[in-house]
């Protein structure tokens, strides 16, 4: 193809060739490093050694909620700030004005009752098996998204608290726990032995609710009408 017939905005042949060469070189470099390089031992040994004291038998949960709890605390802060940013853009636009299709409603009646069950399992399993607050919250958020696109409201009568309370609950509980363990000469987030498991479950439960509300709130794409 000559450059004259090329549509505007599309890169030329030379630029494409240079980019392709650069990408190939980068890919070859990564492959070479993987094949020839020494793989560092990592921290799996240290994690396994400290696992009995962590309050969780799943090493991923132990790292996320105990050894590197500070990172997860800040991640919750980032998620909360993201919703604050979206809400500041303005009120949520109306998503659906037409009647939802029967297929969607039928699928909802099967999937939505299952979501809290899967959510609770993932949350509980997180201490010993793959699972945890983020996955559990995402499953609950998916049920929320299904409600939103069907234009229906949950038939259960939840206590009428503002959504913003639920959104900050995860960060709030995490911060409260992080600070509450400090008396007695402990560092921030240094859970007392014996209590670590219960505290992690408390933090994860609050985080699950908040993550579900945050992800569903991001999907709404603005401040809900009944929120101040």
């Amino acid at each position: 193809m000559s450059s004259a017939s090329r549509p505007p905005g599309e890169p030329g042949l030379l630029l494409r060739a240079v980019l392709a060469l650069l990408l190939l070189a980068a890919a070859a470099g990564v492959a070479l490093a993987l094949v020839a390089g020494q793989v560092a031992p990592g921290l799996s040994g240290a994690v396994a050694a400290a696992l009995p004291d962590s309050g969780a038998s799943n090493p991923v949960t132990a790292v996320l909620l105990n050894f590197r709890g500070y990172d997860t605390l800040l991640e919750m802060a980032v998620l909360t700030a993201a919703v604050v940013g979206v809400w500041s853009l303005g009120p949520a636009p109306r998503i659906r004005e037409t009647e939802p299709s029967p297929v969607l409603l039928g699928m909802n009646s099967v999937l939505i009752p299952l979501a809290p069950l899967i959510c609770a399992y993932l949350l509980w399993a997180g201490s010993s098996r793959p699972g945890g607050a983020f996955q559990a919250g995402a499953v609950l958020a998916a049920a929320g998204v299904l409600f939103i696109i069907s234009g229906r409201r949950p038939a259960v009568h939840l206590p009428a608290a503002p959504m913003s309370w639920g959104i900050v609950a995860g960060l709030g509980v995490f911060l409260a726990v992080a600070l509450a363990v400090m008396p007695g000469g402990r560092e921030l987030l240094e859970y007392p032995r014996g209590l670590a498991g219960a505290l992690i479950l408390l933090v994860e439960t609050a985080a699950t609710v908040s993550i579900a509300l945050i992800l569903a709130g991001l999907f709404i794409g603005g401040r809900p009408e009944d929120e101040p």
Partner: peptide, 12 residues
């Protein structure tokens, strides 16, 4: 763990 997160968050 990463697979669950990828399916729930990355794809979903």
């Amino acid at each position: 763990d990463v697979a669950l997160a990828e399916a729930a968050i990355g794809a979903g």
